[in-house]
Nucleic acid binder design. Structure first.
Lengths: 109, 109
DNA sequence: CTAAATATATAGACTATCTATGGATAGATC
DNA sequence: GATCTATCCATAGATAGTCTATATATTTAG
């Protein structure tokens, strides 16, 4: 049985941005948070996570700064920018529209 | 403003298989059906549709035969196989699990 | 006669995911 | 002191699934 993707493609940026509305967080913590909240259904692989964070940085939707974690480790903390918050809003509403549309196609009647 | 995808990536096969549970249909008709049922939200481009149908054929989830349409045009009609029906069931439940998981991450609380 | 709609298909670009790899440090255990 | 596990970052390369663009052909409408 071929292993399917751990994510629904196209939703990762939205999930990351949403996670950062709660508090600034480092990459590893973002991945953990998504995994935990999704009850282990969504797993963000490192090879997806870090490129995604680079994309978000490049587009100005998040900013980053190096800090120490509570456990005294160096980590790069990401913060949502106002543009990122706006982008999140658009992605959320677009996502809802899509899901509703898919729902209509999947209905039996 | 960069144009977003007309589909939620990863859902096309499921949408096609679902469409074929209603009746055998040709490619063009499948695309039309998805567009209509989704109320114009989901648009299946030709460059996505035909490769997808090739994939489904290759995996034995659909079979195809050339026929005439009602309007006397040649078209390739696709029919869902038993394996395709099974596959659809798996994709549907997997999709629901994913959507529920995303919903949990997107919740505010 | 021409344009739009119906119908199939491929090539090539692009994007986002994955696997695999590499590195580094902290804390716990042996 | 060694080693293991968890924490943390990041990139390269493979793969997959979209998209745009193109090609072909027929039917219907204006």
């Amino acid at each position: 049985m071929p292993k399917k993707s751990e994510l629904l493609p196209g939703t990762l940026d939205m999930l990351i941005l949403k996670t950062l509305t709660r508090a600034p967080l480092h990459g590893y913590g973002i991945a953990q948070s998504i995994k935990r909240l999704s009850e282990d259904v969504l797993t963000v692989e490192e090879g997806s996570l870090y490129p995604a964070l680079q994309r978000l940085l490049l587009q100005g939707w998040v900013k980053a700064e190096w800090k120490k974690t509570e456990t005294n480790r160096r980590a790069r903390y990401y913060t949502l920018t106002p543009e990122g918050r706006k982008q999140l809003g658009e992605e959320l509403s677009q996502f809802e529209v899509m899901i509703a549309a898919i729902g209509r196609v999947l209905q039996d009647a």
